[in-house]
Write a protein that binds this DNA or RNA. Sequence first.
DNA 1: GACCTGATAATGTCATGACAACTAGCCAAA
DNA 2: TTTGGCTAGTTGTCATGACATTATCAGGTC
Lengths: 254, 254
Amino acid sequence: MSAQEENVLPMGMFMDLERSGPIPLYFQVSQRIEKAILSGELPAGSRLENEVALGQRLGLSRPTVRRAIQEIVDKGLLVRRRGIGTQVVHGQVTRRVELTSLYDDLTNTHKVPSTHLLTLESQPADAKTAERLGVDEGSPTLHLRRVRLADDVPVAVMENWLPAEFIGIEPTDLVAHGLYQVLRSRGVTMRVARQHIGARKSTAEESALLEIEKSSALLTMDRTAFDNSGRAVEFGQHCYRPDLYSFEVTLVEK
Amino acid sequence: MSAQEENVLPMGMFMDLERSGPIPLYFQVSQRIEKAILSGELPAGSRLENEVALGQRLGLSRPTVRRAIQEIVDKGLLVRRRGIGTQVVHGQVTRRVELTSLYDDLTNTHKVPSTHLLTLESQPADAKTAERLGVDEGSPTLHLRRVRLADDVPVAVMENWLPAEFIGIEPTDLVAHGLYQVLRSRGVTMRVARQHIGARKSTAEESALLEIEKSSALLTMDRTAFDNSGRAVEFGQHCYRPDLYSFEVTLVEK
DNA sequence: GACCTGATAATGTCATGACAACTAGCCAAA
DNA sequence: TTTGGCTAGTTGTCATGACATTATCAGGTC
């Protein structure tokens, strides 16, 4: 039946490693392997060269090779089995879900994003917002509400609350860029996000904003994002037109 | 403002490591740290003892300690910063999303799952099913359709297709257990799953099955799951009552 | 007082070596 | 024929050591 092909990486591969540059060796290797999988050079089901041999051929230690392979395993493209080896997962390949904003997603899929700014104001935190952001109830927050369009078609209504330190953000920034771009330009680096994804019917206002019929089905997402010091930098309640947007998740069992 | 507390793990901790048992040392350590975070012993924002010191105190090498910490970073509970240290992420803690079935989820939340089996038949693969399962179009598959209930309330309608080797599965198995339980008992271990999450309106039949009004909003999930050899073992199209179920996702930027 | 500089401390990367655990395949014995 | 064990191959775990990179902070200089 499906023969376990013994495909091995071509000998000439991986020979152009930048050993003195700032890019880690394991990252250079993992990128090349991932590229080989996505390009079909390593077909589904084929076996990867074993760690020790690969390391010898590349002049790398086994831990470095292991880490490179592990990166791709975590993306769901490779599967390892002790005593057997490492194989390419079957099935159509999909890009990994990363910590991006809707604005980034649209840019990556070659659509033109734009924004209608509905609300931008300072607002005292209610109980829920205070809990999500980890601030005191009643303390000032930046409250914003936007409609995001892709190629001039409305895709999402997004409502967000940010800690007081961001109250200086200007409307022009939010119209020209995504929220995450604005935050990054202010020196914030998002590291962890916790999302809840659900569904509900649209309200009359949302139906009008998204140009859909009343009481349509909406895809909803609540998110709290944390920066690299572990503090909450954003809490948002978004709703999406389900015919134009969906979430993609890859799970890997350890 | 928020003082960076210098909390350090209590000295008596981690002293009961099972060095000869089958459980890896890094896993024992990561479990204890995670437990300390979830129990509040390590409060949000507190700093973890540095890797070298922690390793010395536990009698472990630095790679082992590093791996233990990395496990928790990947779960979104810790954040590392070079030159600074490792801190506990703020915000309410949530369990990690793992590769589980709805049946497992319900059991874990102390609800009583049950199943109505609507369809269980052998069916030739159509184009879409063939592509998702990686089999030839027209080749036999096992087709099943179920309603999943929690505490006797319908939560989801689930339609699944499995490769031909599973055609022997009995109705009694599926009524008494979840699909993933049945697969595991047949020696299959799921390793990777790719999911698409969306929303749409319910059909008349789905509304009746889920005991909701017609044209309600539904949360939908399409999934293809792969075993440890990288072969597809299941393709499913599920829809959930959004008032009773939602998805939780944690993203970590590398 | 503002700015530069160095010391300090912490995580990030990489190498080397060793042994354990698991799988598949071959081969011999019952 | 079937069962069992042995062997080779591969990933999993762990230790030790070294250096690089980055952030903080104290102190000196202009």
